[in-house]
Design a protein around this nucleic acid. Structure first.
Length: 416
RNA sequence: GCUGGAAUAGUCUAGUGGCAAUGACAAGAGACUGUAAAUCUCUCGGCUUCGGCCUUCGUAGGUUCGAGUCCUACUUCCAGCA
């Protein structure tokens, strides 16, 4: 039996919660802070496992909800790191053999239920409407979540026990307890209710996880997820409750920091959580990746991050640069490089904004797939490189200077 | 040369007497954060004080209260026959 997760802090920020460290799992090591590439269906869209390795990805996050019907098959293959997914993007089916994480399906409770896509957004000025969701596809009860699968319209149910059974069959190194993510539109009262339900589900998740965590021959690990919205009393309370929650003397291996955040609230909320949580456990900030979010998250004690944005925005023509992101549409025939000094394979191969745009707008599906690959490589490398730079800055005692310098360039869009 | 068909916005296209005129693409602007997302929203003749005004469906006439639509001629293109 390969031992379970272990976490070592190499260096912590003075007078702060941030740190650089290492997480050991059965499938390898994650040097933190780290950005985890999202491969919901067991693979990262339009990126091969070789692409991921080349651009410095250390781990992949998949989703128990999307893979739930494949879980027995994945278990039969020996777990996610050995499973060859049937891909829709024609990139080949070599598995990602490094460390893996699965989400519980808790996000889908929100996205298929109360939430519109916009409700997780962090722009304060945006009008948030929770009532506009006319076709609610998920309903929450104490037992779990009943929902209609949007792909085949079939009714289904996931509760903590189902989520743990699925995740233990998928066999990622790190699992998330089944939680209920609230939207920005939900009230304080509803957040109390959802947070307490999430805590009860966490206990049931822990119980079910402990029964199956060694089923595939290596130790799988469980993070509890903190909710509580934007309220300090709720965040501190749920952090304390989950930090001390145990079954037969066994607690959680780490913690997921969940929720929908307004940008200006993120740092404070994470501070409340991480002042209460044990420093020696790894923390994963769920679903965020923009540079300011990663920098603030790291400063406030988050060790790992995941997000669909780098890849999705790449597909949609948003190219990340050190001077801010740009819309590829505006660069027809441009001979400029994507991002000066970028070390990604796309930039190294000499692609320019104009040539990439031409590929994207070609109308040819094969060329478009090529574009999705090239653009995803660039944005993902950009995001991963940021975490590498942050790690180096923490270890080298220049984190604050690095952060200020990076944000000044990125958000003032000085020139480009 | 004869006969038949066609001509609509940047391109293709809908429209057979009634509101600058359908749809697609291209183009332009924006969005996207634990993936119902190779997606979605908006603009796309000109002007505007946002109430409207003006100019448009190959060209020129005509019929009509009213024409992209019907009629005549012309121009160009396509097909068939010589």
């Amino acid at each position: 039996m390969i031992e379970g997760l272990s976490f070592k802090i190499e260096k912590a920020l003075p007078n702060g919660l941030g740190r650089a460290g290492m997480i050991w799992t059965a499938h390898g090591v994650i040097k933190t802070p780290a950005f985890i590439a999202v491969g919901t269906h067991g693979y990262v869209r339009f990126l091969s496992s070789a692409n991921l390795t080349q651009l410095g990805a250390q781990a992949m996050l998949s989703n128990g909800y999307h893979l739930r019907r494949r879980a027995p098959e994945i278990a039969g293959a020996g777990g996610l790191a050995a499973w060859r997914p049937e891909r829709q993007d024609e990139i080949g089916n070599m598995p990602w053999q490094g460390p893996t994480i699965t989400d519980s399906g808790g996000f889908q409770v929100m996205s298929l239920g109360s939430g519109l896509g916009k409700v997780v957004s962090m722009e304060k000025e945006r009008q948030v409407t929770n009532t506009a969701h006319k076709e609610r596809l998920a309903r929450v009860t104490e037992e779990g979540v009943s929902f209609i699968d949007p792909f085949d319209a079939q009714p289904d149910f996931i509760g903590p026990e189902e989520s743990m059974r699925i995740q233990c069959q998928i066999g990622a190194d790190i699992h998330m307890a089944f939680d209920e993510l609230t939207s920005l539109a939900d009230s304080y009262e509803y957040n109390i209710e959802a947070m307490r339900r999430t805590e009860r589900w966490a206990k049931r998740s822990l119980n079910a996880h402990l029964q199956h965590r060694d089923d595939l021959g290596y130790r799988q690990n469980l993070y509890a997820v903190l909710q509580g919205g934007r309220w300090e009393d709720l965040r501190r309370q749920t952090a304390k409750n989950l930090a001390t929650m145990q079954i037969n003397g066994i607690g959680f291996d780490g913690f997921g920091l969940g929720g929908a955040f307004l940008k200006e609230d993120l740092g404070e909320i994470l501070r409340w959580c991480n002042e209460e949580l044990p420093a020696d456990k790894p923390k994963h900030l769920l679903g965020l990746s923009h540079p300011d979010d990663i920098l603030i998250g790291t400063a406030m004690g988050a060790d790992t991050f995941d997000c669909v944005a780098p890849m999705r925005e790449a597909r949609h023509g948003k190219i990340y640069t050190k001077f801010g992101s740009l819309n590829l549409r505006q660069f027809r025939d441009s001979g400029k490089v994507l991002d000066p000094g970028c070390d990604c394979a796309t930039c190294q191969a000499g692609w320019t904004l104009g040539s990439l745009r031409a590929l994207w707008r070609s109308g040819d599906s094969e060329k478009k797939r090529h574009f999705y690959n090239l653009a995803s490589i660039h944005n993902l490398r950009f995001t991963i490189r940021l975490t590498e730079q942050i790690r180096a800055a923490i270890l080298g005692d220049y984190f604050t200077e690095f952060k200020d310098d990076f944000l000044r360039h990125y958000y003032q869009k000085t020139s480009y």
